[in-house]
Design a protein around this nucleic acid. Sequence first.
DNA 1: AATGAATGAGGTTTCATTCAT
DNA 2: AATGAATGAAACCTCATTCAT
Lengths: 230, 230, 230, 230
Amino acid sequence: MPAHTFVPAYTINMEYNPKQLQIIAVAERLFAAKGFSATSIRDISQEADINVSMVSYYFGSKEKLIEALFEVRSRDFRTRLDVLLTDLDLSPFQRVNLMIDGIIDRITEKQCFHNIVVREQLSTDGRTPVISKLLQELKLGNLKAMENIIHEGQKLGVFRNDVDVLLLSTTLFGTINQALSTKSFYRVVYGLEQLSEEEQESHMKEKLRIHLKKLFRGMLTTELNDAVSS
Amino acid sequence: MPAHTFVPAYTINMEYNPKQLQIIAVAERLFAAKGFSATSIRDISQEADINVSMVSYYFGSKEKLIEALFEVRSRDFRTRLDVLLTDLDLSPFQRVNLMIDGIIDRITEKQCFHNIVVREQLSTDGRTPVISKLLQELKLGNLKAMENIIHEGQKLGVFRNDVDVLLLSTTLFGTINQALSTKSFYRVVYGLEQLSEEEQESHMKEKLRIHLKKLFRGMLTTELNDAVSS
Amino acid sequence: MPAHTFVPAYTINMEYNPKQLQIIAVAERLFAAKGFSATSIRDISQEADINVSMVSYYFGSKEKLIEALFEVRSRDFRTRLDVLLTDLDLSPFQRVNLMIDGIIDRITEKQCFHNIVVREQLSTDGRTPVISKLLQELKLGNLKAMENIIHEGQKLGVFRNDVDVLLLSTTLFGTINQALSTKSFYRVVYGLEQLSEEEQESHMKEKLRIHLKKLFRGMLTTELNDAVSS
Amino acid sequence: MPAHTFVPAYTINMEYNPKQLQIIAVAERLFAAKGFSATSIRDISQEADINVSMVSYYFGSKEKLIEALFEVRSRDFRTRLDVLLTDLDLSPFQRVNLMIDGIIDRITEKQCFHNIVVREQLSTDGRTPVISKLLQELKLGNLKAMENIIHEGQKLGVFRNDVDVLLLSTTLFGTINQALSTKSFYRVVYGLEQLSEEEQESHMKEKLRIHLKKLFRGMLTTELNDAVSS
DNA sequence: AATGAATGAGGTTTCATTCAT
DNA sequence: AATGAATGAAACCTCATTCAT
């Protein structure tokens, strides 16, 4: 092998070229639909209309491909998160509502990736340390952001003090994820079969927004006493 | 019992023999840990200490094995669900709290199966009609049970009338699923590394119970007005 | 294993009990339809409504089963052949025609077995010495019988002297086999689709009889001169 | 050429590359010797000195391999058939003799393939629609060609009018097939053990030619009256 | 830079057979 | 005498990856 030229694309490794991004996009869709193991490199290369060997060529391996996918998408999120919450001058409830809207939008927008994230979280033997680390950071970032908002509200005396932010965040993400993954059940129950895919999605998003805002309001508002004895 | 004509047991009746149940149990654990596709029949047979061909022998195929798994566990759930909620003479809130406890117990008890269920729900191209149908029934049963309880509370004037039961159920299951799938993150954040597996789990369950009961109380209680305008 | 009782059925090996004959009958049908290798013991046991292990139990192996099949059917033929041709007082042509009728009847009657015989003959690496030997004897018997009849006709000056009996026999059996194996093509060409299976078969048999008798007459009759120069 | 999307060559066009043709050649020999089912992909790949997975790679499956085999060989025949019979200016008998020679040559030349064809015809549940169709076309082509020749002879008053062309064709192919499949018996009977394989074959071919030409002459010649009463 | 032919490991499944009962 | 649970080998096929070009 001619050594001077055999520096495979994937060793450059921080910037991805258009072809790589295209492959990542296709892989994202398929991994979301069928799962990582059930998706073959042939599936991907077929849908992306590229040669089978391109995945290995560009990423080194299938494993590395999903790592690249996580790297790219994680970066997206990190950037978007901070922007949303720090600049504006808003009341705590407005801020919470904005956060809820932001997260719903973000997740529904990148539904495929979130689907993959959920799958990865389910895996006991984490796919790979790289992904585990990225996921951990992602989740920690989310948690810190929410903590900031809520602590601010608490300092202002608007929010209760006994708020379990982790569980609240768990409810927020859990509800959205659950809603998305049972979309078809949702359609049946609400009788939305005649609506288009998009109409149905925006319908569900709207309902979700209202539901989660009400929920957060209930959990954060001071007047509620905590007498919950089963 | 696999007969001489190779008609596996489950096509005759719905009884599985001890060996089959053992295989199902092993498969359940592995499918939960790695996913269906990533789990090979060899993995299963190795852990179950049986011959590779026994899976095909007892179930016909890997596909049929997971179907059997769903059939067995679904049956468990159906039976347990009704019992819990119909007989006792309780207040609406007591009933709701009992339901929450019941569902938390049920899911944490059959964590592996629930993990698999979540994975299946994520799959766009449902593994197989058999499983889709069972899942649909399961979810419908859950929803109906919750509707019964809440409607009763509404008739008694204890609960608000504008409750979206489907979304509430989504939050309930979504929160529990999310909590379980991010268990290790939970451990890090709460600094529970020194606790044993079981101690940690019961700690989390306890927190979950309180959180969800508070949450339901907030969403169902009448005094809360619904002014949530972002 | 208790030695005194473990003399498996198949070692007795000259007489077959009803169960064995039933298995042989089913195997015959399936081997004819799909070939030996393509027919599994499970296929056989399913159709015969017996346990899978019965084939090994009664015959020792699948291989031995087909040997048994050949033994049983070969015996049938040997007995039937001689009877037909030696006793009656007939003209040579009458005798030839009787032979043709007899062979057509015999083959169509035991079509499955003949199908298997043809398959075996095609196999370069003869299934097993046992079968090769039986087949050889069978063919030799057929040839001798035909030689007897023809030599007698020659002695009487009714038949030509330059008859190649082997090739004539080849034509006789080859034509019948070919006709049977292209039965469905025959049906299409003659437009017999509306006839029942049996009607069609008797139609074909009748045509075959006439054709072959005419053919033999042509080949055996003296007046034809042999000037065949391409 | 198997493209990156794993669409094997033959689905794009009907050209097979040298490697594929080599595999087909090996498969042809083994299928002829042992039958389709009894021949494993391992057998083929071993004899062809290629990797086991190449068969699936080049043809998709074992099933598709035999289909490819039939496609290639069928094409051969179709082209050769017409050429032979249309151009020359010959007497009807010359033409028939030429046809007989041609068919004998063709079959002995492609003996393996013909062996496989005979096996396929014997299968009640035709291997696959593709093969059934090709076989049907092949047989129909043969029949039409023979009909043309014979009808011409009839128009010229040289051949009898009551000729059953289908049965005559059955006899022609049946005799050749039978002769080839009982080659070893033929050797024993004629005492040709000391001859080489090729010498023996040409000996048999010569005998076959004479036999079949005489036979056709007898069946087609007008003077023979049809008094065949058993 | 990119291809596609080729590989070998490993996947699921089917097979004939055995063995304890 | 007969069963059926269980086995291990081998079947076909798919997989991710490599390598020469």
